[in-house]
Design a protein around this nucleic acid. Structure first.
Length: 625
DNA sequence: CTCGGAAGCC
DNA sequence: GGCTTCCGAG
């Protein structure tokens, strides 16, 4: 029953956050969102960056959760390091016990309603993400559930069901599973009574939203038009890229919960953002839920980090959605700008692209897995030889975009956009094919989204090449040369977005370019590859910039604030990602991930708090062991 | 401290 | 697959 494209992992219950087999990163997220543990581990620094203040304690907690009394930081950190290759995390160099989630590309859109931060304390660095496992329990535990998951989304029941699950408590104890959680429980417990989780959810969402509704919600529905939102981008700190969720008000149904990520997304440059959002006075008139929005939304989900092991599938299928080719409406500007954000960040690009391509075709986009192929340093070093060959060859086919993308990026980071065509193929390919071509794609993916296919793995070394590839892509073969090193990896992380200036536009826009006719008609039908992407980008970019103006500025500032070598790069990318999430291949097929778009920081998360509480129960630790 | 290979467990 | 455990190296 699973659709062809869907990856197995999507179904895996075990990996789900709430499941017994909680994964370390879920656990970390969980701890991060609990105020109780702020002394032990907390967000700090920029996006997704967190510091383990008390390594031993974190290890202890982890050990407790996993019933591994022997756990210690050394081991835990090994596990964390293990995520480097998966692109889930990376180390913040120079800072002890400091790691950073790769939210950049990963959009946490899924499970939007999950709010992350419970604590108000949540900082700045906290991602707007749903944190922790607690919340996301979506992943069905059983196959049947899985199936249902999709249903859940659409049906009214979904939330409730979710809530129920949550209520049960995900954390299990080692022993039977029945036990509840200890520490957390208490904390949460009290609140919960007041509002049951279910209630909370329901409150958030109207009981029976058709899926349409949901989307609407996300899209813009949330804020009642009137919410006065604080200035969206107030964000003052560099740290808070993720801003906290913008939740609308308390009563809001959804809003809050709904993905902050989505809503927040500034998407400045998405030009055509559909922002239906209410808030904008201009458009406020009616928000109609556009297919685009949905699309965006869906896509976002697709890409979201959480997809990792969660099952996004649900989102995938929306056959009906047809995306018009968008184009950027210049007019509105993303109004979203501010607050609400439609989900779009990614989408636009995606939508356009995918719209055409993907969606229609395959619903299941998610092919991407986070795992990248890690090569060991050694391997890389030694491996260089291998790498060269395959990568180069593959490129040729890639569609124009790909190549173009590279070109653009060539400078600094490498970004790559997948070609649409590839995408499709990719889906299938992912696992199976590994032809040379694929390799390129994969590589690209890695850079962008961090998705890796098996193939990629093998050729990790090739990654080294990618740089070259980028340059060469269009061309074709990449020269062998390796420049491995950690930098690469990092680059990879960063890579995704990179827009030159603020706009991430360029890179992503590639896609748009395609679709956008209005502008410079950049692409001529046939020769996409040949076309001077740069020019296109440039134009596009300029437009975007105009549009983005506000948003960008902010971001720029943020960047300034920080300025660390690498980090800067990353951030840039990140930003790009956010803004431009567009680029990534939207098609789902590929797995691209996108940047998350983070939005401005609204602040409220009251509603969310309820959720949190509800979820809180889930518990972090089981003492039962 | 941090990294990552290798082996092993579930 | 996702760690856990151990460990040598930087």
């Amino acid at each position: 029953m699973k659709t062809p494209g869907e990856p197995d992992w999507a179904y895996k219950p075990e990996s789900s956050p709430g499941s017994r087999q909680i994964q370390l990163w879920h656990f970390i997220l969980e701890l991060l969102r609990k105020e109780e543990y702020h002394d032990v581990i907390a967000w700090q620094g920029d996006y997704g960056e967190f510091v383990i203040k008390d390594p031993d304690e974190v290890a202890r907690l982890w050990g407790a959760r996993k019933c591994k009394p022997q756990m210690n930081y050394d081991k835990l950190s090994r596990a964390l390091r293990y995520y480097y290759n998966k692109r889930i995390l990376h180390k913040t160099k120079g800072k002890r016990f400091t790691y950073k989630f790769n939210f950049n590309k990963l959009v946490l859109v899924n499970y939007p309603f999950i709010d992350m931060g419970s604590g108000r304390g949540v900082p700045q660095s906290a991602p707007p993400v749903p944190t922790g496992g607690t919340h996301f329990r979506f992943p069905p535990s059983t196959p049947s559930d899985v199936l249902s998951s999709s249903e859940e989304l659409r049906s009214p029941g979904m939330f409730s069901s979710v809530a129920r699950r949550m209520a049960r408590g995900s954390v299990s104890d080692c022993s039977d599973g029945t036990s509840t959680n200890s520490e957390l429980e208490e904390a949460v417990g009290a609140d919960e009574r007041g509002v049951g989780p279910e209630r909370a959810f329901r409150g958030l969402l109207p009981p029976r939203l058709p899926h349409d509704s949901l989307f609407r919600v996300y899209g813009g529905g949330p804020n009642p038009a009137g919410l006065p939102r604080p200035a969206p981008r107030v964000h003052p700190e560099p740290l808070s890229p993720f801003s906290v969720s913008p939740l609308p008000g308390p009563g809001g149904l959804l809003a809050p919960t709904l993905s902050p990520a989505l809503s927040m997304t500034p998407t400045p440059h998405l030009s055509y953002t559909p922002s239906p959002s209410l808030s904008s006075p201009m458009m406020g008139s009616h928000f109609s839920f556009n297919p685009e929005d949905m699309k965006h939304y869906l896509q976002a989900h697709t890409q979201s980090v959480y997809n990792y092991h969660l099952s996004p599938r649900a989102f995938l299928h929306y056959p009906n959605i047809v995306i018009p080719q968008p184009h950027r409406p210049t007019l509105e500007k993303p109004a979203a700008h501010h607050l609400h954000g439609p989900p779009l960040p990614l989408s636009h690009s995606l939508s356009q692209q995918s719209g055409g391509v993907d969606e229609g075709q395959h619903p299941s986009p998610f092919k991407f897995k986070l795992q990248p192929p890690p090569l060991g340093r050694k391997q890389r070093e030694s491996g260089s030889s291998l790498a060269a060959s395959s990568s180069s060859s593959s490129s040729s086919q890639s569609t124009s975009y790909t190549g173009s993308a590279h070109l653009n990026n060539s400078g600094p980071p490498k970004i790559k956009v997948e070609p649409i065509s590839d995408i499709e193929s990719e889906e299938e390919v992912e696992v199976t094919d590994i032809s040379e071509e694929d390799e390129l794609n994969h590589i690209d993916e890695e850079e962008e989204g961090g998705i890796f296919t098996p193939t990629a793995r093998r050729n990790r070394h090739q990654l080294n090449n990618h740089h070259q590839a980028n340059g060469n892509l269009r061309g074709l073969s990449a020269p062998p040369h390796t420049s491995p090193d950690e930098d690469d990896d990092e680059d990879v992380f960063k890579t995704p977005a990179t827009p030159p200036i603020g706009g991430g536009g360029p890179a992503f826009p590639l896609l748009n370019l395609k679709s956008e006719p209005g502008q410079a008609a950049p692409i001529s039908p046939g020769g996409t590859r040949c076309i001077p992407l740069k020019l296109r980008f440039k134009r596009r970019w300029s437009e975007d910039q105009k549009m983005e103006a506000d948003g960008e500025r902010d971001e720029a500032e943020d960047k300034k604030v920080r300025a660390d070598g690498e980090e800067e790069m990353e951030e840039k990318r990140e930003e790009a990602g956010r803004r431009g999430g567009e680029m990534e291949n939207g098609r789902g097929g590929g797995g691209v991930i996108l940047g998350l778009m983070l939005p401005p920081p609204p602040t409220q998360r009251r509603a969310s708090s309820e959720l949190q509480r509800a979820t809180a129960q889930l518990s972090l630790e089981n003492t039962s062991c």
